[in-house]
Design a protein around this nucleic acid. Structure first.
Lengths: 205, 205
DNA sequence: TGTACATCAGTGAACGCGCGTTCACTGATGTAC
DNA sequence: TGTACATCAGTGAACGCGCGTTCACTGATGTAC
């Protein structure tokens, strides 16, 4: 850490990172503006040079999370191309990988109580993330006969819900709530069964 | 509400109910011991006659929630008998119905940060709830040829995760996060696809 | 039925604490000339 | 290159607040005789 004088140099981002670390360690409740300031080596009052208040700081952390999340999902989708199936499965894995790698962001996004419609910026980037999954679902559903094809948005909602449920219930270190299986396996196998149910992979695969 | 004098009569339960209402309205964070006491018409200090502290009160709310939850699940399971399939589907519906009908309990159980291993009582009743779903999954998996039968605990974990994800993402009044479909439909159809994937209901059902 | 007394649920005042936020300020930086 | 000055990031003291918790207490209840 470079020595600094009166001016911090990059306080705004340092505060976001301090907030993310606190959120990761103690949950969205445990995070306080004062502690984040302290961790950034600065007086609580200094925070107000960069944010309107406590909520604003969390919202920015969430926004950055959605940005990364959308990128990660997009990257996975692209990497799976041109196979619609491979692309879809990759986004599922990417969801869990994101939750694991960026727990602070994940919590800020989904458990902090910040509304996604708080600012247009936030709403837009959240939409971008959702669109990737929905796109992957739409591509894949092309392979289902139209008359038994569910709406892609329902399809992607199922997978989103399953992924989120696996993260919340089995990928957190809830003391004592031992996962019976590694979350990755759980999600992978769950999606496998689901896709088989849609007739998208062979029954005996 | 009956008039009361110096003694409340049933303060312990009144506090639990006040806590549940506050949790429902403002989330687990919004709840404070003082406000719960106030709502029950009593001094904050009076709480300590019945609970060791704030956490203890939440834990009791969660415990009562698990109790109801386990009963509801058991009832659904029984009602579906003797059909393993009907029993299983009923427990899925019961999950969502519970989350809807007892939002305060649900939040206390799953979002308050209370560890299920906090007390033996709590751990036991949580286990009882989990057992119902696992039992339903085990019954159902009897109908799958052994060589392609997934472990029932994985099976039930999938459904639990899907249900929880649907509740968290689509059954909450997250302002602006409009659900594309009614949560009930989403869960029902998701479970349907999943069971088809296991070969438990006909592909064209 | 009436009195004495033990029990204990709830009071009310007090505590120390850390919070988010405000304000007038000061010190560092960078630009104009 | 050097000086004057505008800009603005961060300070430090202060605020009011509500929190969880403690304590000695008091009022109501119910039981023994």
């Amino acid at each position: 850490m470079p020595k600094r004088g009166y001016h911090h140099g990059n306080l705004r981002q340092a505060l976001v990172e301090a907030a993310l670390e606190l959120i990761r360690e103690k949950g969205p409740t445990g995070f306080t503006l004062s502690e984040a300031a302290k961790q950034a080596g600065v007086t609580p009052a200094a925070v107000y040079r960069h944010f309107a208040g406590r909520e604003d700081l969390i919202a920015e952390a969430a926004r950055q999370g959605y940005e990364i999340f959308a990128d990660v999902m997009q990257f996975a989708y692209d990497k799976g191309q041109p196979s619609a199936l491979a692309a879809f499965e990759a986004t599922g894995r990417a969801y869990l990988a994101f939750a694991r790698k960026y727990p602070g962001h994940y919590i800020a996004m989904f458990e902090s109580g910040i509304s996604v419609n708080r600012t247009p910026d936030l709403a837009a980037v959240a939409q971008r993330a959702r669109n990737v999954l929905e796109r992957a679902a739409a591509d894949l559903s092309e392979h289902i006969p139209p008359e038994k094809r569910p709406p892609p948005s329902m399809f992607s909602a199922h997978i989103w819900a399953l992924s989120h449920g696996v993260v919340e219930l089995f990928a957190r270190n809830n003391p004592g709530t031992q996962s019976p299986f590694p979350p990755e396996d759980l999600l992978e196998s769950g999606i496998g069964v689901y896709l088989r149910g849609l007739g998208l992979i062979k029954p005996d695969a």
